[in-house]
């Protein structure tokens, strides 16, 4: 990779911090507060989900049964694996193993892309079956429940769509950080960047861990 030309040297400590520990703590605190805001951002949708699930229980059960549970399970596994590789990437960054760091970051991006691929496949399948809310919504299996089932699918597309947008941002973030680490000599800021991107990536995984049972497994045993 970039071992040929001289790596860019950057001062490890931003000038307004006193020491590396303070810089790392600030970065970590800032990221955790940002994740709290993201949690509340998704929270609005979780609140709507809770309220409507209680108001239209039957429609949620019937509509949820139309989702592809297997695809959801695979997606959860893919995302958990990407979380593993991300954690290993952060570990490699701390141990200053540049090669392993870039490999793990690449694998994380690949898994992220696989997740988006499966998701896109699911959505296109739903599109053909007339499950996309709006004028095309037909819900052919149980037309009598079409009214409220549309609310479920609206929540489904909003939640998974918002999650997918965050995942795309995550992939872009990991790519830029990988680029930064490839070109720059190792400095505290490099490690901070990788660690904070890792926190963001794990947060996306945490949201999916909740989304999967709430959307896919409402009442599948019937």
């Amino acid at each position: 990779m970039s071992t040929t030309h001289e790596l860019l040297q950057e001062p490890p400590l931003a000038e307004h911090f006193d020491d590396l520990e303070q810089q790392h703590l600030s970065a970590q605190l800032g990221m955790w507060i940002f994740l709290a805001t993201e949690a509340l951002f998704f929270g609005g949708l979780f609140c709507a989900y809770t309220v409507y699930r209680r108001m239209h229980w039957i429609e949620f059960v019937v509509a949820s049964r139309e989702l592809n549970v297997a695809a959801g399970a695979i997606n959860t596994a893919v995302l958990l694996t990407s979380s593993l590789t991300m954690a290993l990437a952060v570990r490699a960054a701390k141990l200053r193993e540049r090669r392993w760091l870039l490999i793990y970051l690449a694998i994380t991006i690949v898994f992220g892309a696989v997740f988006l691929g499966i998701k896109a496949f699911e959505w296109s399948e739903d599109y053909e079956r007339g499950l996309v809310p709006g004028s095309l919504f037909t819900f052919p299996f149980r037309p009598e429940f079409a009214g409220f089932a549309e609310i479920f699918f609206l929540l489904y597309f909003l939640m998974t769509g918002l999650h997918a947008i965050h995942l795309i941002i995550g992939i872009a973030l990991v790519a830029t950080v990988a680029g930064f680490c490839a070109r720059h000599q190792y400095v505290a800021q490099g490690e901070n960047l990788v660690e904070m991107t890792g926190l963001y990536w794990h947060f996306i995984d945490v949201i999916w861990v909740f989304l999967y049972p709430l959307l896919y497994l409402i009442d599948v045993h019937r």
Partner: peptide
Amino acid sequence: LATPVLAITVALLAAERIWGVGIFDPRLG
């Protein structure tokens, strides 16, 4: 801790106007 909930509320309102599908629409429940 409060502003993100405004962001999602305003986003839902915009989604409802753009795609005409009501998360707050009484006709759909």
